[in-house]
Design a protein around this nucleic acid. Structure first.
Length: 544
RNA sequence: GCCCCGCUAGCUCAGUGGAUAGAGCAUCUGUCUUCUAAACAGAGGGUCGGGGGUUCGAAUCCCUCGCGGGGCACCA
């Protein structure tokens, strides 16, 4: 569906052409008006075109406003200074309310593009902590957004099951089972003991076999990780094991291709990847001098697996910001393999810090190996999945989250997630009340009866929704959704509250026609709240 | 030293180069005889880290300095 913003944009360009502007147009910066007094959308077209047309901005804006014809009478135009302000018309807003269906806002931006969203992918050598939760929620919500906008999204977790950390983990479990000290840099913690005990109980025949024990331990950790993220409503389409790449000989294939392209060089007994044109210090080791491959060798094969073997047209990876230094190398590797680097989109999310004085005696950096951290499960136990998701999604990935555990625990009903959920529950409730009061409501709503400002403001918010979806999906920025949800919830609460102040403004009144019309707003807003909350993975309760 | 992110109200954070910079929390003042007060109405609170530059116009773009966080492995 075309958004109303697109419709205005098209009409705007047409009007500008009619003024005799040829050639390339500057960005006319049509966007949401910042001040409600300026209407709903605004453009600085007059200022933008003043130079080309060699006329005063105000005059140009006047002419545009006079000439423009927004389709369906969706908006009226008014020139103020060099700006042209657009206001959505009451009639169009009223009709919009009846057009809102459960999947309102969905579009076909992606045209079925196959996009892989790979996220979390932490070494399965320990429980997830609160920082990991951020990547899980961000990746999952991006996938939800992509699915909602006409993409085929594939959620994938890349399981490092045969690297050094995986081996260390296996050795740590082995040591625990045999009463030995854990290896240098190995893993300790109750979960290591638990997995060791489980292995002893369930598979006593493998406790002396390091390889099998490692596989068992990794599988056990993957199960735990799967269970943890499932509590947040995160489900993967695929758990892709690093070892599979080697079975399919993809790293070798990638390396052969790089060798042919002159991207590999031997140095100090190891094999390095580096663009011939770049400096030495940016090189990365592919094969160590002891003949073992590094994770980078696997990653090269993984690129082929995704872009060629499995045919993803775009790959979105969500990484913690501590991996940012690896981005240029991955992009370069993709290019060297003949993959368009712009199709490899890497989203870095900043870390989650615990505030000083937080519970669990932590307060400092979390370390998996030291076995001292606040786990994601503990956080979910305390504040619930909805609150965790809402809070995490509220932040742009570029912002470090200062997570005050103390505050999160005591959040309770003060939690902002309830504001949105309560709006949904209220609307659900009012619809039930309407059915109890009126046995025979008209099938069709007379939306022209919706003329109160608080009624039209709900419709206005609904009008903005498709544009919010489009922006969030295009920019891969899910944090736009909770901000929209808050705005819509505000208009809903105002709409509802008008009836508290004055009974004649309740949704359910004596007049069946008026009740029916107001129910149409309720229904539309409820669908949209539900849709938006779904995109966030947050529940939309019907009662609270 | 080099690279990445951040610096906006007391706190936590939004803010596609446009008009008088916003929200939540916190503080203060009002509103339940109700379709749900987990709500609504209102108030106070700002040198957008500092300084230059580009532009008709800068929180936003460029340069520079400062502060905080993260990274710079033959770990991932």
């Amino acid at each position: 569906m075309l958004t109303v913003r697109d419709a205005i944009q098209t009409a705007l360009i047409e009007a500008v052409r009619d003024l005799g502007v040829d050639g390339e147009l500057p960005d006319l910066e049509l966007g949401r008006a910042k001040d409600a007094g300026h209407g709903d959308y605004a453009t600085s077209a007059g200022l933008k075109l003043a130079r080309v047309l060699r006329r005063p901005p105000g005059q140009i804006a006047q002419e545009i406003a006079a000439a423009i014809a927004v389709p369906d009478g969706a908006a009226s135009a008014e020139a103020v200074g060099g700006y042209v302000n657009f206001r959505l018309t009451d009639e169009w807003l009223q009709r919009l309310v009846s057009r809102v269906e459960p999947r309102f806002g969905a579009n076909d931006l992606g045209h079925g593009e196959k996009v892989q969203v790979e996220f979390l992918s932490v070494n399965p050598t320990g429980p997830l902590h609160i920082g990991h939760g951020r990547g899980a929620i961000l990746g999952d919500s991006i996938a939800r957004l992509l699915q909602f906008t006409g993409h085929s999204a594939h959620r994938e977790y890349y399981v490092n099951d045969q690297n050094r950390q995986a081996r260390l983990f296996g050795e740590s479990v082995y040591a625990r089972l045999h009463g030995q000290e854990p290896p240098e840099g190995g893993y300790v913690g109750d979960y290591v003991t638990e997995i060791a005990e489980t292995a002893r109980a369930q598979k006593p025949d493998i406790v002396d076999n390091l390889d099998e024990l490692r596989a068992f331990a990794i599988a056990a950790m993957v199960d735990r990780i799967r269970a943890s993220v499932a509590r947040l409503g995160v489900r993967y389409d695929e758990w892709f094991y690093e070892s599979r790449l080697w079975h399919e000989q993809l790293p070798e294939e990638a390396i052969a291709r790089l060798k042919n392209g002159g991207y590999l060089k031997e140095k100090e007994g190891a094999l390095w990847f580096g663009d011939p044109a770049e400096t030495e210090e940016e090189d990365r080791v592919v094969y160590k001098s002891n003949g073992e491959p590094t994770y980078f060798a696997s990653d090269l094969g993984y690129l082929l697996s995704r872009f060629e073997r499995r045919g993803f047209e775009r790959v979105v990876e969500v990484w913690g910001a501590d991996h940012h230094g690896y981005v240029p190398r991955m992009k370069a590797a993709a290019g060297a393999l003949g993959i368009d680097p712009t199709k490899l989109v890497i989203i870095l999310n900043q870390l989650v810090n615990l505030k000083e004085g937080a519970a669990a005696g932590s307060g400092g950096k979390m370390s998996k190996r030291a076995g001292r951290f606040v786990t994601l499960d503990e956080l979910i136990d305390r504040v619930g999945s909805d609150a965790v998701r809402y809070f995490y999604l509220l932040r742009s990935p570029d912002t470090t989250i200062e997570f005050d555990l103390e505050l999160a625990i005591t959040q309770g009903n003060e939690n902002p997630v309830y504001y949105a959920q309560y709006a949904h529950a209220r609307l659900s409730n009012v619809e039930v009340a309407a059915r109890e009061r009126h046995r025979n409501l008209p099938d069709v709503a007379k939306v022209a009866l919706l003329s109160q400002p608080w009624e039209l403001d709900v419709a206005r918010q609904l009008a903005f929704w498709p544009g919010v979806v489009e922006d969030a999906a295009r920019l891969l920025e899910p944090h736009r959704i909770p901000y929209y949800v808050h705005d819509l919830a505000t208009s809903v609460h105002r709409f509802y509250h008008a009836g508290n102040a004055e009974p004649a403004y309740r949704v359910v009144v004596d007049d069946p026609e008026l009740t029916r019309a107001r129910l149409e707003i309720s229904r539309a807003a409820r669908h949209t709240l539900k849709t938006a909350l779904d995109l966030m993975g947050v529940s939309a309760p019907e009662r609270m």
